[in-house]
Amino acid sequence: MNIFRFAGDMTHLISVLVLLLKIYATKSCSGISLKTQELYALVFLARYLDLFTDFISVYNTVMKIVFIMSSLSIVWCMRMHPMVRRSYDKELDTFRHYFLIAGCLLGALLVHEKFTFQEIFWAFSLYLEAVAILPQLVLLQRSGNVDNLTGQYVFFLGAYRALYILNWIYRYFTEKHFGRWISCISGLVQTALYGDFFYYYFISWKNNAKLQLPA
């Protein structure tokens, strides 16, 4: 464990807590893409298949459970909770995310570390996480003004993977057998997709103005 990875995990945890706060405090999920939340639930379920078979550490197991439970509960809330589901921007959240799932599954079948069930789902989860934010970014552009908590949620979600890139650089230089090209390349693509969001987020923070993404 290094400081970059720990900071990345904490930033990821903060993004989840900010989203839970927004939904429970405002009893609303306006501006949140259900499709991105479903993709993230799939990412965690596909990546943490080894939850019960490989014990790494208490921290690792606890965080995996937190991420799985929180992503599933957010999806459940947005679909089933009587008050929250009413505020879902159904007509704006129209990204065809099934194509993302199919594309990543195909990609994982073609490019993986080893042709085993667990490795293929692991690669699938990394490719899917790289593009999972797309429906959310499209929704932000369509819904015009972005409320603070939603903006902070997306910001922390993007920042966590950027910190993981620093972690991979650190591990590359400090560990002999460190070659995780699938993680690194997926992580770079993922962080790049946040590029323009980060730019407009910084502008809004500098001008102390409302976050506005150009349509």
Binding site: D9, H12, D54, I56, N60, F67, W122, Y164, H177
Partner: peptide, 10 residues
């Protein structure tokens, strides 16, 4: 030989 990917990251 290269270790199988250590899945120690989240």
């Amino acid at each position: 030989d290269q270790l199988a990917n250590p899945k120690d990251e989240l």
